[in-house]
């Protein structure tokens, strides 16, 4: 049974690229268009990895990430952030979220900035999923 990778991104191009990379590396791709949908799929499918965008309508990747990391059933799922936003900005926003009463969460294990090379993304997936 191939491992499942969830792609959460509002950009259809990115979804298609990521899905192709995932499938080319022999995994199953699950697709969500925003944070809300992402959470539903995580609950239903318990993916082995989440590939998460940050800027999205409805629920941002930032919030979904902290939801996952503060939830006992999901916090073990590795999350790879893949965003056009710089890591620095993400961490700053994360800190701001905590200041506004959010829970303290660890920094994401892997943070990739778009445009990432497809080979590199593939390697990251293989490293994490084996």
């Amino acid at each position: 049974m191939p491992k499942k990778v969830l792609v959460v991104d509002d950009d259809p191009d990115v979804r298609l690229i990521n899905r192709t990379i995932i499938e080319e590396n022999g995994y199953t791709a699950l697709i969500a268009e925003d944070g809300e949908q992402g959470l539903q799929i995580i609950k239903k499918e318990s993916p082995d990895l989440v590939l998460l965008d940050v800027l999205m309508p409805k629920q941002s990747g930032l919030r979904l990430y902290s939801q996952l990391k503060t939830n006992k059933s999901f916090q073990k799922i590795p999350v790879v952030i893949l965003s056009g936003i710089a890591k620095r900005t993400f961490l700053r926003s994360q800190k701001a979220l905590v200041e506004f009463g959010g829970n303290e969460v660890p920094e994401p294990e892997i943070y990739l900035e778009k445009p990432v090379e497809s080979d590199e993304l593939g390697k990251v997936l293989r490293d994490l999923l084996g």
């Binding site: 990115v14 690229i17 056009g84 900035e113 778009k114 497809s118």
Partner: peptide, 9 residues
Amino acid sequence: KNILYGFKG
């Protein structure tokens, strides 16, 4: 960056 990712992808 998003556009570039689109091109690369």
